[in-house]
Computed example of a mutant assay.
Amino acid sequence: MAKYLVCGKYIGEGVQGLLSEGGSGRRSEIHELVGSLGGRVESVYYAFGDYDIYGIFDMPDNNSMAAFSLRASASGMLSVTCIPLMQPEDIDEAAKKTSRYRPPGVDWLP
C-alpha cells in the first residue's frame, strides 16, 4: 500500500459541522471513508495554522487516494491536499536512476 499525508482545511459550513460533531465524530467519518476505499488510517491530528486536520493513510493506489480527495472535497466544506510519502530507500533507488536534463537557457549537458 502507498502512504499519504493528507492535509485538510475546513471551509464555511464545514467549520460549523466540526463544532457540532466534534473532532472524534469527524475522525470516525474519515475512518469510514478510507476503509470503504480499501485503505487504513494510521493517524489523525487536529491543528491550527495552515491546515485544520492532518492524517496519515495507507491506500491501495493513487486512484483510491484521488477518490478520497474527490469525495471529501465534493461537499465544498473541506479543502484537501494529498501528499505521497516515500521511504528513504525509495529515494535511494530514485537517486540511482540515470537521466538527462538540460535546464532552460543552457546549451550544454553535464
Rank of each mutant, 00 (worst) to 15 (best):
L5H: 08
H31D: 15
L109N: 06
V15N: 03
S28W: 00
A94Y: 15
L70N: 13
A74V: 02
H31Y: 03
D107G: 05
V106T: 09
I30H: 10
L19Y: 12
T98G: 14
S24L: 02
P84W: 13
I91W: 15
Y46S: 09
R100I: 03
S75D: 07
F48E: 10
G55I: 00
S79H: 13
E13H: 01
Y10M: 04
Y101L: 09
A72Q: 10
R27G: 12
N62G: 09
R100T: 04
L78E: 08
D52S: 13
D92R: 12
I91Q: 08
R102S: 14
P104K: 04
R27V: 14
Q87I: 06
K9S: 12
Y10W: 05
A72H: 09
A74I: 01
T98C: 08
R71E: 15
V41A: 15
Y10G: 02
R26K: 03
I56V: 15
C7G: 11
G17L: 00
Y54L: 06
D50K: 07
G49N: 06
S28Q: 07
M77L: 03
K96R: 13
Y51C: 05
P104L: 09
D58P: 00
G23D: 03
G25D: 03
R102W: 05
I30P: 08
L18D: 07
L70E: 14
S36I: 08
G23N: 02
P104Q: 05
S20N: 03
T98N: 13
S99E: 13
I53T: 15
E21F: 00
I56H: 15
D50N: 07
P84S: 08
M86I: 09
E32V: 02
Y4I: 01
K96M: 11
N63M: 04
E89V: 03
E93D: 07
G55H: 08
D50A: 13
R71Q: 12
V6T: 11
G12V: 02
D50L: 07
N62Y: 12
F68M: 07
G39E: 15
G55E: 13
S36D: 06
P104Y: 13
P84M: 02
K96P: 05
R71W: 00
G25V: 00
L78M: 03
K97T: 07
A2H: 00
V41N: 15
S64K: 07
M1V: 12
R27D: 14
G12N: 00
F57M: 11
P110M: 13
G8I: 00
M65V: 10
R71A: 11
I11S: 04
M65W: 13
S28D: 14
G39H: 02
C7Q: 09
F68C: 07
R40H: 12
P104H: 13
D61R: 06
